[in-house]
Design a protein around this nucleic acid. Structure first.
Lengths: 379, 379
DNA sequence: CTCCTTAGTGAAAGCGGTTTCATTACCGTT
DNA sequence: AACGGTAATGAAACCGCTTTCACTAAGGAG
């Protein structure tokens, strides 16, 4: 706060008001050294009375790092990113840390430099990286800065991270389709060079291929298409795929967002879902349940929470909340998938009518979870 | 960066390397005073060569404010909030400002104190407040701090803000329903005491009432219900409303999120949308087009962009991008509304089949837009 | 040829904290 | 009674940068 005088209240004011020296005030605030009970009291009283709040920049400069957690992610409006961020924020709110957000959009090339620089500049207490792979230089930068790093949805040998087994997830999705009798199964995912380096989509494709191979099904090249992430781009791919002389009877999209594009394309091509085309997504974002989309659920919000808790742990904070288990991948069957070619009730009545009529199916494929590996604290 | 020695490069290192004094380095970096061309050059060379980056905390402490924009919003996972934030981030990324995010969740009481304190502590260069009303103390705090503030979706006399005319929007939605022949029209919105103070839902309700009154239609108390924001809570209200002996034939939900709840309730009650029940939402978030929900579109992303640009303007930055117009509210007719009681094709085939078959209708009701009012820069 | 600007630069004083170091007072020990 | 140890505190240095101030050199005006 500040007196009506204009300038903010500093420690000096508090010290004066309490009749002690500045370091003593600092000691009271940080509990960094013993202070006589009555001294402490008068200091606290002065703080209260003057409405004093420490200046974080001064404190940060002096200590060499700030009470800030830096969160780095690509494209915040991506629902999966938002959910993870939400989980993270939820736990960070209970801590004294402020949240610095860096949304690294497109320029992948520039990105590389940025990551390192940003971190070193702000000297945050900790860093959380969401859905971005780090290269050697990034690792080096983090390491040099001696700052604890937690990864979410980003592979790494060096930093602790929850990782879902995307290969298994892709397999799970594909096996569901195969179990429904589908043979001509397409895959639509992210263009793999463009990705910010997250192998999620590619891994899911591998899972798809593995499941296909296990079932001795052919993976036709024209059934496997990728494009930059997005509903519209996915719709284009799906459109093309449905226009093939022999179109697939089922499509596995690497994310719900892309699955929606497939649904859109199906509509414009007058292909009914699920009776003429089964569609399965990945993630289980909110809109998926709304749309009755069958999908593979991954724990988005929890992964954010866990990252936050893990970071607080590394920062030597006693945390009240217990670390929640990372739920395994889970097949959520809704109304966008159906047995192939079965002339059943024309299931175009989804959404409004069938909203949320989901059946959860815990698959036998369990997700693999990388185990914690703590990183040394600075200094 | 830092030498492999460990400690980060400071201005002193640069000065030494360039054979000049520290202030000169500062002047080169900030262009705050003339520097001889060759001096400048050798300084720049040294900076490049050492990989120097200024310490933002030191700089901030010295200048009295940081190169940070503080963004305050409630609940970041709310799609409307995310979209606005996305727009804001988009423009901030082109600026030298970092982004501090404060997600003020539940505790409304605590909130009041927080807002003021947070701002004063971090001494940001600017503040953006999204979807939160400020009370007198907040205003005072911002004012004392002498920091530029821009509001998004938050009413204020003191700070510049884009405001959509929610009353007109509510009227627009309701008139659409009335035009379709509906007479028994319900409203489902946010509990008005709980809101973080944003009058959006209440204003939309007023618009609803105004339209009803204009059409000489009765606003039955049991047709107007509110609850804390959310799909589930809205679903409960809708369920109750549909269970009335004389249920409404149409429901206007104050947000798309709540409209989805109405859809869910309709499904469990086996009420078909839109032939038995018309549903209209507000916002036009992504999922709305997916679901074929008729809604009133408001410019979420653009309002974020505009806030960012306006803030940069106040911070005396030359901005390349031109301030986009704030598009007016717009009625987007999709498949969740239909003429009342007309025994037309049983339109339960929405979503998958009717995805995005939207007709945009620019209503005659144009949205009112508060005009810019600049706020004096600090000092 | 003086006098006044202005360009160019460094010394030094902050900004608001933290931390080391020194000092004093008060213990309980031998 | 002299001594080592700890509690309690203040003086001073420092974190890395900005800014004021003072000073010198070089132009331009009179």
């Amino acid at each position: 706060m500040e007196g009506s005088t204009g300038r903010p209240v500093t420690m000096a004011h508090v010290a004066l008001d309490a009749g002690v020296s500045i370091p003593t005030v600092s000691r009271v605030i940080n509990g960094s050294a013993p202070v006589a009970p009555d001294t402490r009291l008068s200091v606290l009283r002065a703080i209260e009375h003057l409405g004093y709040h420490p200046n974080p920049m001064a404190r940060g400069l002096s200590r060499g790092y700030s009470d800030t957690v830096l969160v780095i992610l690509p494209h915040i409006t991506e629902p999966s990113a938002t959910l993870r961020l939400g989980g993270l924020i939820g736990v960070l709110r209970t801590s004294p840390y402020e949240l610095h957000l860096v949304d690294l959009e497109r320029p992948v090339t520039e990105r590389v430099r940025q990551v390192g620089e940003i971190v070193l500049r702000n000297r945050p207490a900790g860093v959380v990286v969401i859905s971005m792979s780090l290269d050697e230089r990034d690792h080096q930068a983090f390491h040099d800065a001696g700052v604890p790093v937690v990864l979410v949805d980003s592979p790494s040998d060096e930093f602790p991270a929850d990782t879902v087994d995307d290969v298994a997830g892709g397999e799970m999705a594909t096996r569901h389709l195969i179990a429904l009798g589908h043979r001509r199964i397409g895959f639509i995912g992210d263009r793999e060079e463009t990705t910010v380096g997250i192998p999620a989509s590619a891994d899911r494709r591998r899972g798809y291929q593995r499941a296909m191979a296990a079932a001795r099904l052919e993976v036709r090249p024209d059934y496997v298409r990728t494009a930059p992430h997005g509903t519209e781009t996915a719709a284009e791919l799906a459109e093309q795929m449905l226009a093939l002389t022999e179109p697939p009877s089922a499509i596995f999209a690497a994310s719900d967002i892309q699955a929606f594009g497939v649904l859109t394309a199906a509509r414009s091509a007058r292909v009914r879902v699920p009776d003429q085309l089964s569609v399965i997504g990945f993630d289980d974002i909110f809109a998926a349940s709304l749309m009755g989309l069958t999908t593979v659920r991954q724990p988005l919000e929890v992964s954010g929470r866990r990252a936050g808790l893990r970071l607080l742990q590394m920062l030597r904070h006693t945390i009240e909340e217990q670390m929640p288990e990372l739920p395994p991948l889970e097949l959520v069957v809704r109304n966008s998938t159906a047995p192939v070619l079965t002339a059943q009730e024309p299931l175009s009545t989804v959404s409004f009518e069938a909203l949320d009529m989901a059946t959860k199916v815990s698959s036998s494929l369990t997700s693999a979870v990388r185990q914690d590996q703590l990183v040394p604290r600075r200094k």
